[in-house]
Amino acid sequence: MKRNPLIIVVVAVVVALMLFIGIHTARRSGPGSAAASLDIKGHAAPEFALQSLDNKTVHLSDFRGKAVLLNFWATWCSPCKIEMPWFVELQQQYGPQGLQVIGIAMDDASKEDIAKFAKDLGVNYPILLGKESVGEAYGGVQFLPTTFFIDRDGKVLEREFGLKSRSIFEDNIKKALGRGQPVQAQK
Protein backbone atom coordinates (compact mmCIF):
# COMPACT_ATOMS: atom_id res chain seq x y z
CA MET A 1 0.00 0.00 0.00
CA LYS A 2 1.38 3.32 -1.08
CA ARG A 3 1.51 6.04 1.58
CA ASN A 4 1.25 9.66 0.70
CA PRO A 5 4.14 11.49 2.40
CA LEU A 6 1.93 14.58 2.79
CA ILE A 7 -0.46 12.61 4.99
CA ILE A 8 2.40 11.42 7.17
CA VAL A 9 3.70 14.97 7.55
CA VAL A 10 0.26 16.37 8.35
CA VAL A 11 -0.43 13.64 10.90
CA ALA A 12 2.95 14.24 12.53
CA VAL A 13 2.33 17.99 12.72
CA VAL A 14 -1.14 17.54 14.15
CA VAL A 15 0.01 15.02 16.75
CA ALA A 16 2.86 17.34 17.76
CA LEU A 17 0.46 20.27 18.00
CA MET A 18 -1.98 18.34 20.15
CA LEU A 19 0.81 17.16 22.41
CA PHE A 20 2.00 20.75 22.78
CA ILE A 21 -1.50 21.95 23.64
CA GLY A 22 -1.98 19.12 26.12
CA ILE A 23 1.33 19.72 27.88
CA HIS A 24 0.75 23.48 27.93
CA THR A 25 -2.70 23.01 29.41
CA ALA A 26 -1.47 20.59 32.05
CA ARG A 27 1.25 23.03 33.09
CA ARG A 28 -1.11 25.98 33.17
CA SER A 29 -3.81 24.18 35.06
CA GLY A 30 -1.64 22.82 37.85
CA PRO A 31 -2.56 20.06 40.24
CA GLY A 32 -5.48 21.91 41.80
CA SER A 33 -7.33 22.37 38.56
CA ALA A 34 -7.06 18.70 37.78
CA ALA A 35 -8.77 18.05 41.06
CA ALA A 36 -11.36 20.73 40.36
CA SER A 37 -12.37 18.95 37.19
CA LEU A 38 -13.16 15.86 39.25
CA ASP A 39 -16.91 15.88 39.59
CA ILE A 40 -18.10 13.70 42.43
CA LYS A 41 -21.78 14.41 41.88
CA GLY A 42 -23.61 11.10 41.77
CA HIS A 43 -20.75 9.28 43.47
CA ALA A 44 -20.28 8.15 47.03
CA ALA A 45 -19.21 11.05 49.21
CA PRO A 46 -15.55 10.55 50.18
CA GLU A 47 -15.13 9.43 53.77
CA PHE A 48 -13.12 11.64 56.10
CA ALA A 49 -11.95 11.75 59.67
CA LEU A 50 -11.57 15.29 60.96
CA GLN A 51 -11.14 16.87 64.32
CA SER A 52 -14.02 18.89 65.69
CA LEU A 53 -13.70 22.06 67.73
CA ASP A 54 -14.29 19.98 70.85
CA ASN A 55 -11.40 17.66 69.94
CA LYS A 56 -13.46 14.70 68.79
CA THR A 57 -12.67 12.78 65.64
CA VAL A 58 -15.68 12.95 63.36
CA HIS A 59 -16.24 10.68 60.36
CA LEU A 60 -18.71 11.32 57.58
CA SER A 61 -19.93 7.77 58.06
CA ASP A 62 -21.07 8.74 61.56
CA PHE A 63 -23.99 10.44 59.84
CA ARG A 64 -25.01 7.62 57.51
CA GLY A 65 -28.78 7.56 57.21
CA LYS A 66 -28.99 11.32 57.49
CA ALA A 67 -29.02 13.87 54.72
CA VAL A 68 -25.81 15.86 55.07
CA LEU A 69 -25.15 19.42 54.03
CA LEU A 70 -21.35 19.63 53.94
CA ASN A 71 -20.18 23.22 53.85
CA PHE A 72 -16.55 24.16 53.22
CA TRP A 73 -15.90 27.64 54.59
CA ALA A 74 -13.26 29.89 56.16
CA THR A 75 -13.16 32.79 58.57
CA TRP A 76 -11.76 35.03 55.82
CA CYS A 77 -14.67 34.25 53.51
CA SER A 78 -17.27 37.02 53.69
CA PRO A 79 -19.91 35.20 51.58
CA CYS A 80 -19.63 32.28 54.02
CA LYS A 81 -20.84 34.60 56.76
CA ILE A 82 -24.07 35.11 54.86
CA GLU A 83 -24.77 31.42 54.43
CA MET A 84 -23.95 30.20 57.89
CA PRO A 85 -26.94 31.80 59.64
CA TRP A 86 -29.12 30.17 56.97
CA PHE A 87 -27.58 26.82 57.78
CA VAL A 88 -28.32 27.41 61.47
CA GLU A 89 -31.98 27.96 60.61
CA LEU A 90 -32.11 25.05 58.17
CA GLN A 91 -30.55 22.75 60.77
CA GLN A 92 -33.26 23.76 63.22
CA GLN A 93 -36.00 23.37 60.64
CA TYR A 94 -34.92 20.13 58.97
CA GLY A 95 -32.85 18.51 61.71
CA PRO A 96 -35.85 16.59 63.07
CA GLN A 97 -36.39 15.17 59.57
CA GLY A 98 -32.84 13.88 59.38
CA LEU A 99 -30.70 16.77 58.16
CA GLN A 100 -27.20 17.21 59.51
CA VAL A 101 -25.25 20.31 58.57
CA ILE A 102 -21.47 19.97 58.90
CA GLY A 103 -19.06 22.86 58.47
CA ILE A 104 -15.48 22.22 57.44
CA ALA A 105 -13.21 25.18 58.14
CA MET A 106 -10.52 25.45 55.46
CA ASP A 107 -8.61 27.95 57.49
CA ASP A 108 -5.17 28.85 58.71
CA ALA A 109 -6.74 30.61 61.66
CA SER A 110 -6.36 29.12 65.12
CA LYS A 111 -8.95 26.76 66.50
CA GLU A 112 -9.88 29.45 69.02
CA ASP A 113 -10.50 32.02 66.29
CA ILE A 114 -12.58 29.55 64.30
CA ALA A 115 -14.59 28.74 67.41
CA LYS A 116 -15.13 32.44 68.15
CA PHE A 117 -16.25 33.08 64.59
CA ALA A 118 -18.70 30.18 64.71
CA LYS A 119 -20.00 31.20 68.12
CA ASP A 120 -20.57 34.78 66.97
CA LEU A 121 -22.74 33.43 64.16
CA GLY A 122 -24.65 31.15 66.51
CA VAL A 123 -23.58 27.99 64.74
CA ASN A 124 -25.53 24.99 66.04
CA TYR A 125 -23.86 22.26 63.96
CA PRO A 126 -20.44 20.60 64.13
CA ILE A 127 -17.49 22.56 62.83
CA LEU A 128 -14.56 20.41 61.76
CA LEU A 129 -11.00 21.53 61.12
CA GLY A 130 -10.40 20.98 57.42
CA LYS A 131 -7.45 19.38 55.69
CA GLU A 132 -6.38 19.98 52.14
CA SER A 133 -6.58 16.25 51.45
CA VAL A 134 -10.30 16.29 52.27
CA GLY A 135 -10.82 19.25 49.95
CA GLU A 136 -8.96 17.38 47.22
CA ALA A 137 -11.11 14.30 47.80
CA TYR A 138 -14.15 16.46 47.20
CA GLY A 139 -12.85 17.60 43.85
CA GLY A 140 -10.54 20.38 44.96
CA VAL A 141 -12.21 23.06 47.01
CA GLN A 142 -10.50 26.02 45.45
CA PHE A 143 -12.93 28.71 46.38
CA LEU A 144 -15.31 29.20 49.23
CA PRO A 145 -18.03 28.67 50.10
CA THR A 146 -18.48 25.28 48.50
CA THR A 147 -21.36 23.12 49.65
CA PHE A 148 -22.18 19.47 49.00
CA PHE A 149 -25.54 17.81 49.54
CA ILE A 150 -25.27 14.15 50.44
CA ASP A 151 -28.29 11.88 50.53
CA ARG A 152 -29.11 9.34 53.21
CA ASP A 153 -27.19 6.66 51.35
CA GLY A 154 -24.02 8.72 51.35
CA LYS A 155 -24.18 9.73 47.71
CA VAL A 156 -23.33 13.26 46.57
CA LEU A 157 -26.56 14.59 45.18
CA GLU A 158 -25.60 18.16 44.39
CA ARG A 159 -22.85 20.71 44.97
CA GLU A 160 -22.98 24.47 44.94
CA PHE A 161 -19.96 26.68 44.37
CA GLY A 162 -20.05 30.17 45.83
CA LEU A 163 -22.89 31.95 47.56
CA LYS A 164 -26.30 30.85 46.38
CA SER A 165 -29.78 31.80 47.45
CA ARG A 166 -31.28 30.26 50.56
CA SER A 167 -34.03 28.68 48.47
CA ILE A 168 -31.47 26.77 46.39
CA PHE A 169 -30.01 25.30 49.57
CA GLU A 170 -33.44 24.46 50.88
CA ASP A 171 -34.45 22.74 47.64
CA ASN A 172 -31.28 20.66 47.71
CA ILE A 173 -31.88 19.74 51.35
CA LYS A 174 -35.39 18.55 50.51
CA LYS A 175 -34.02 16.43 47.68
CA ALA A 176 -31.34 14.97 49.94
CA LEU A 177 -33.87 14.18 52.66
CA GLY A 178 -36.15 12.50 50.17
CA ARG A 179 -33.54 10.19 48.77
CA GLY A 180 -32.01 7.13 50.29
CA GLN A 181 -33.15 5.04 53.16
CA PRO A 182 -33.45 6.68 56.53
CA VAL A 183 -31.67 4.52 59.07
CA GLN A 184 -30.86 5.05 62.69
CA ALA A 185 -27.79 7.25 62.53
CA GLN A 186 -25.08 6.77 65.08
CA LYS A 187 -25.12 10.45 65.99
Binding site: W76, P79, D108, F143, L144, L163
Partner: peptide
Protein backbone atom coordinates in the same frame (compact mmCIF):
# COMPACT_ATOMS: atom_id res chain seq x y z
CA UNK B 1 -3.63 38.99 49.14
CA UNK B 2 -6.96 37.28 49.44
CA UNK B 3 -9.40 37.84 46.60
CA UNK B 4 -13.13 37.44 46.27
CA UNK B 5 -15.64 38.02 43.54
CA UNK B 6 -19.31 38.73 44.08
CA UNK B 7 -20.13 35.23 45.25
CA UNK B 8 -17.00 33.38 46.32
CA UNK B 9 -13.62 33.88 47.93
CA UNK B 10 -10.32 32.38 46.96
CA UNK B 11 -7.63 31.21 49.35
CA UNK B 12 -4.87 33.66 50.26
Amino acid sequence: YQACDNAACYPP
